[in-house]
């Protein structure tokens, strides 16, 4: 392990009700990378990111983030992680602004008014930020959660299907923002099944299916490994997933 390796996953396995959902997975995410975890529904992507963010503990194997072991009560480590789950459940009886206040207090982050104003206008939440979250649409909740993460500017972003419910303007803003923070040395682990998004953002890709990592690396490397003439992620994805299924 070196300082450049932000996330190190070693032989991680996880079972739910006796069923293995992750089987000895290992991968590394380096500093400043946009690492995209791709896979079909039920592949184990969400379980992986839940383990990485410290929400779940693996049944076997180890997870290191910033060279420190991740576990449920590792509060210091969690302070530098921004985790967005695939389903945006929040306290529906709180107002949007109260939720932001709650998150900033939990993470002990100072309130940056300039950044708040910038983000709230980009996400177009000005009119509803003082309203209870129960009246928000799914997209609004997603925006609020994204805003609460971007506002505290963590070192590592773990984002599970971040574009669900977002409108085109926000999607465009989000993509630009992710590229910008990556260029500033922040690390992003993105979990999605949208190939288009991965194509546009990914510096490295990892394809997972049935709880196993099928292939991982730079697109160029993967394409040459698979003897493909193209670096198209769609081609790579279909080749890897259907190829393995047919065996």
């Amino acid at each position: 392990m070196n300082n450049n390796e932000i996330v190190v996953v070693r032989n991680v396995s996880k079972y739910f009700d006796g069923k293995q959902v992750l089987s000895n997975i290992s991968f590394v995410v380096k500093k400043g990378e946009i690492f995209v975890l791709l896979g079909p529904n039920g592949a184990g992507k969400t379980t992986t990111v839940r383990i990485l963010s410290g929400v779940l503990e693996p049944d076997s194997g180890e997870v290191y983030i910033f060279n420190k072991k991740m576990f449920l009560n590792n509060t210091e480590l969690k302070r530098d992680i921004g985790y967005l789950p695939d389903e945006p459940y929040v306290y529906s009886k709180l107002r949007g602004i109260e939720f932001i206040e709650f998150i900033l207090s939990l993470y002990k982050k100072e309130f940056d008014q300039g950044k708040y104003k910038y983000l709230i206008s980009q996400f177009e939440l000005q009119d509803v930020i003082s309203q209870p979250i129960e009246i928000y649409s799914k997209g609004m909740k997603q925006k609020l959660l994204l805003m609460s993460i971007l506002l505290r500017d963590p070192e590592l972003y773990i984002l599970d299907e971040p574009l669900v419910g977002l409108d085109p303007k926000c999607i465009s803003f989000f993509k630009q923002y992710i590229k910008q923070i990556s260029s500033l040395g922040k690390t992003v682990l993105l979990c999605t099944h949208l190939l288009e998004l991965a194509e546009q953002l990914a510096t490295r890709v990892c394809i997972i299916n049935n709880g196993k990592i099928l292939i991982s690396g730079l697109r160029k490397e993967i394409a040459s490994q698979l003897n493909l003439n193209t670096e198209s992620l769609e081609e790579i994805y279909l080749r890897v997933t259907t190829g393995f299924q047919h065996e």
Binding site: Y91, I97, E98, S105, L106, K108
Partner: peptide
């Protein structure tokens, strides 16, 4: 609502959870 960002109060863990 008249709640504004100037009302935001970053407080201790106990107070945060109590308020919530």
């Amino acid at each position: 609502s008249c709640l504004k960002e100037k009302d935001l109060n970053i407080s201790s863990l106990f107070r945060t959870i109590l308020t919530k």
